[in-house]
Design a binder for these strands. Structure first.
Lengths: 117, 117
DNA sequence: ATCATTGTATTATGTGAATAGTACAAGCGG
DNA sequence: CCGCTTGTACTATTCACATAATACAATGAT
């Protein structure tokens, strides 16, 4: 994974979003074991505490679960995963329409711009 | 103006974006005089320094200009303003397509989801 | 001429994010 | 049993953002 960050959003938020995306599109599969906090932190060139914070939050969402001393795993609930993908897509659609409306474009005009991408 | 902020992005960045939007859609018109830094800060319930920082940046973009002791004004370059609107719209389109692709949706599927909004 | 308002600058303080370093209990493999 | 790896917790420090409180030169209005 590339682990690219920008500076205007807290890193742990960006980590959450990137992992969510990886789960949603199946880069991480249901039941997969994650690398350890320390390994992931090293890979992302980030402090272990920061990675830990992101993972904890993903766990509260039920996308991960922890087995105390053996590691962290992706949820086995495939329904939850496909729901996540649809939810993320819907958020993008809603957000796009909203922003285009704020810019004074109708849904039809927005769709037209999409075609001519 | 509402001046709504969220907590995951620096306030001065959000101010910049909101003012850009207001200029792009003509809420602020070319040549308009802005309220003073202090007034804008009070309106947005933000520290004058924070508002100042945002306005300075907009000035570097050439969207505002300052007359030393009389106030700040929107650029009179209407071409720049309409270019801004198109640029912001394009950014939304590009971003939308990119995000949907990352989620595994083709441009056609994305367009389809738009229709069924 | 005086005064209020303009943008701008400076210093101090508080807060959250991120880093660095360390520590510990729990379990798995040898 | 021993040692390594797991997640987790804690303290200390740095940094950017934001606030607070002033200060000042320039100018337009009175």
């Amino acid at each position: 994974m590339p682990w690219n960050f920008n500076s205007n959003t807290p890193i742990y938020i960006q980590i959450i979003e990137q992992i969510k995306l990886s789960i949603a599109v199946g880069e991480y599969k249901a039941g997969d074991k994650l690398l350890s906090v320390r390994e992931l932190a090293a890979e992302a060139e980030v402090n272990p505490n920061t990675m830990q914070k992101a993972l904890s939050e993903l766990e509260r969402d039920g996308l991960l679960y922890t087995q105390r001393t053996s590691g962290r795993f992706i949820t086995s609930d495939t329904g939850k995963i496909s729901a996540l993908r649809k939810q993320l897509a819907n958020e993008q659609v809603e957000n796009f329409i909203l922003k285009m409306q704020m810019l004074g474009y109708s849904s039809e005009e927005a769709a037209e711009m999409l075609k001519n991408h």
